[in-house]
């Protein structure tokens, strides 16, 4: 057995700070019928797909616009912070801490539907 070292990819102070967006439950992709037909096409899953838009109102509250829904969230501190570890070892056999996460945006409210067209009441 050998020992695997965990090292910083850069001097500790200059490691980039990444963010986490935490949502309740699980994201599912709408079934891609075209892709299912073509078995040779690799399943890319979420790769390259659009997630949503995030805005921050004047008090700093994050608003997520996801498909036809919006959610408001909260910015919270991650304590203790997460280290983002490369899952593969580099050529020297070491694992690298690529980034540190000290803040996350958590969305735990029920999504509200966006209603763009309100039918007028029949007289």
């Amino acid at each position: 057995m050998v020992q695997f070292y965990v090292k910083c990819s850069k001097p500790f102070e200059t490691i980039p700070e990444w963010k986490v967006i935490e949502i309740q439950g699980e994201l599912n992709l709408r079934e891609d019928k075209e892709a299912k037909k073509d078995e040779n096409k690799p399943n890319e899953g979420f790769g390259g797909k659009k997630f949503g838009d995030i805005h921050f109102d004047e008090s700093g509250t994050p608003i997520l616009v996801l498909g036809h829904h919006t959610m408001t969230g909260k910015i919270t501190k991650v304590s203790p912070p997460y280290g983002v570890l490369g899952s593969e070892r580099n050529e020297k056999g070491d694992y690298y801490v690529e980034a540190i996460i000290r803040e996350k945006i958590i969305f735990k409210t029920r999504p509200k539907p966006i209603i763009t067209h309100v039918p007028t009441r029949l007289k």
Binding site: F46, F51, H55, P81, Y82, V84, L85
Partner: peptide, 21 residues
């Protein structure tokens, strides 16, 4: 404001999270 998308390699699980106490 941010327009957020999944990176093309998101399914490859290139990273792991570890709590740094």
């Amino acid at each position: 404001s941010a327009s957020v998308s999944f990176s093309p390699f998101v399914e490859q699980n290139k990273y792991r999270l570890i709590e740094l106490n």
